[in-house]
Simulated scan of single mutants.
Amino acid sequence: MQPSAIRSAIADAARAVVLPEGVGKLTATGYVPDAVVAPHFFCGEYSVDFDRAMNRGLDEVELTCRVLVGRADDRSAQDVLDRLLAGSGPTSLKAAIEAARGAPGGYALGGLAHDLHVTRIQGYRWYEHAGTQYVGAEFIIKIIGEG
């Protein structure tokens, strides 16, 4: 699996969320950006467990992604973040990302991986990015594919 292609495909999938009117559109990158236009989703840390099956048959990736929301108003920013963290629905990042799993029996991320699953959300807190404070959280995504 190619890390940059995987991260880019995850960011593409994240852009499918539909935020409430007046919030703006979610921006997303497959890399850690110098600066963000909030709300913003990006792929960060990428770790790989090699050789989960013999002869380079399967690698397992754990991808840590972050979503950051501007803090024009503490309460409304956290409301937008909560919508993005929902387990289902049009604003759910989990649902948007897992939609990229493809059809049953098919490959995920347009053929880049065997499967993926958003396993957890963590780190709901204030983040500083490029000198600006945002409320945000981390998504942990498990991805499996050929070695």
Rank of each mutant, 00 (worst) to 15 (best):
T91E: 08
L93F: 03
V80Q: 07
R52G: 00
R52L: 08
R66H: 14
L93W: 02
A99Y: 03
I97C: 06
A96L: 02
A100Y: 05
R75I: 13
S76G: 00
E62W: 00
P90M: 08
A99V: 00
R66C: 08
A72G: 15
S76E: 14
L58T: 03
D82F: 09
S88W: 04
A77W: 11
L58I: 00
L68A: 11
S76R: 14
V80D: 08
E98R: 06
A99I: 01
N55W: 04
E98K: 05
L63D: 03
L68M: 12
P90L: 03
D79C: 07
S76I: 11
A100I: 05
G89W: 01
E62V: 14
A96F: 02
L84F: 07
R75G: 09
L58H: 00
C65Q: 07
G70I: 07
D82R: 12
R52M: 13
S92L: 06
D73Q: 13
S88Q: 13
S92V: 09
Q78E: 15
M54P: 00
G89R: 00
A95F: 01
G70Q: 10
Q78R: 15
R52A: 14
K94R: 15
D82T: 15
G70V: 06
A99R: 07
V69D: 12
V69C: 10
S88L: 04
V61L: 12
N55S: 12
N55P: 00
N55A: 12
A95K: 02
R66W: 12
T64G: 06
L81G: 12
E62P: 00
R71D: 12
D51S: 05
E60N: 10
A95G: 03
P90N: 07
T64M: 10
R83G: 15
T64S: 13
T91G: 04
L63Y: 08
E60L: 11
M54N: 06
L58C: 11
V67Q: 06
R101N: 13
E98P: 01
D51A: 09
A53D: 00
S76T: 15
L68I: 10
V69K: 05
A53M: 01
K94P: 02
L58V: 04
L85H: 09
L63H: 12
S92G: 12
A53T: 01
M54A: 14
S92I: 05
A96Q: 02
R101F: 00
S76Y: 06
L84I: 08
A77H: 07
M54S: 12
G57P: 01
T91L: 03
M54V: 10
M54H: 06
T91S: 10
V67K: 03
G89T: 03
L85T: 11
L84T: 09
D74Y: 12
T91Y: 01
C65M: 04
E98H: 03
E98M: 05
A96G: 07
V69T: 10
L63K: 00
D82G: 15
A53R: 01
L68K: 10
S88Y: 09
V67P: 08
S88A: 15
G89L: 05
L81F: 09
L63G: 02
D79T: 15
D79W: 13
I97P: 05
V80T: 14
G70E: 14
